[in-house]
Design a protein around this nucleic acid. Structure first.
Lengths: 190, 190
DNA sequence: ACGCGGATGTCAGGATCTGTCATCACTATG
DNA sequence: CATAGTGATGACAGATCCTGACATCCGCGT
């Protein structure tokens, strides 16, 4: 066998997810992950900036999908509606990878350090959404407000989907949550 | 002088904020912070779980204030209105400590690790808000949705306040942002 | 004076992450 | 086929973060 088996990153991600799931994030050393992947600790850190990042490799792809969905929305659509549609589309993708997403989320839910990384990735998504909205002509602060609020709604919907013992689709829960927000925000006029 | 100068935590916080501001979070070692405070590295870690936490000591107090404001809101008030009022009250407190808040935020803005910690503190605030709303009888998912959305709005308002070259109060900006959200969320009916 | 409890100091050590240089495999080129 | 170049990996040293274990000091009550 050659020195370089293909797909080093994929092997590292698989090994990390498995070990984190088996023994918990803190109880796993980077040397162990690298060893299971047939690599060295030093090589792990060449592929991932830190021990947490190996679980968040897909975040940039997710961001591109979101931004793309916003760009391709009809011109007439209102900002919140554009964001709701983009997040519903993402929800549909999660539905397809249901088991993997749940396994990953169980690992993250068990460790605050991983939750921190998750939150900053979500914040980056909110910022990217706001930028895409500005490119559509949405002014500030409406763009940032819509992006941040959209991610907030998605977080609630995602959590409900994770805890849902049934088989409802995430896209459906996202839609419901945006409807609920409309009701909640429509408070007493000033 | 005695071995134990009073207010060890306060000295550590002051030393950390000063050093982080002078040279950047990464360029400061815990040993340096402790040294400036007249303590040892080991003592630093007895007071703060990690190098970041020293900047977030006030978070629990903030949470208590927020929850208290929700508890004391009039029974008739709608959930989003309760949260808006609580966050406006917090905004007023920030106004009083304007310079310190800005100095702290400049340090945080310069370092992603600190932003992660800030985000998880804000997420904890959102969760606490949701819990306080549930105690008022607000059902799920409305409670979580309102809490998360309220924090999202506050984040946008806070950023605008930080960047505002003028002297507008944060409470005022928070109020404006909630009004803007009402407009944005009031999209096309289903 | 005495002991108790809490805060601090001292020391040792594991784990994370980085810099540096050597080594190996693949590829292009003659 | 030979050679050199390019990129990924290995090997090693080291700084820093963070923790465990134990000793020491101070203030306080008795």
């Amino acid at each position: 066998m050659s020195r370089w088996e293909p797909n080093a990153r994929g092997r590292l991600e698989q090994a990390a997810l498995a070990l984190y799931g088996e023994r918990g994030f803190e109880q796993v050393t980077v040397a162990e992950i690298a060893g299971r992947a047939g690599l060295t600790e030093r090589t792990f850190f060449r592929h991932y900036a830190d021990k947490r990042e190996v679980l968040f490799a897909g975040a940039s792809a997710l961001q591109e999908i979101l931004v793309g969905a916003v760009e391709e929305a009809p011109d007439a659509a209102a900002p919140m509606e554009v964001v709701a549609a983009a997040l519903a589309a993402v929800g549909a993708m999660f539905d397809e990878r249901r088991d993997l997403v749940r396994q990953r989320q169980a690992v993250i839910a068990a460790n605050p350090e991983l939750q921190e990384r998750e939150l900053i990735k979500l914040a980056a998504l909110a910022t990217a959404l706001a930028g895409a909205l500005r490119d559509r002509g949405v002014p500030e602060p409406a763009a940032s407000l819509t992006g941040q609020t959209g991610i907030a709604v998605f977080r609630v919907a995602f959590e409900r989907w994770i805890d849902d013992p049934g088989r409802r689709g995430l896209a459906e829960v996202v839609r419901e949550s945006f409807d609920e927000l409309r009701t909640l925000a429509a408070g007493p006029s000033v």
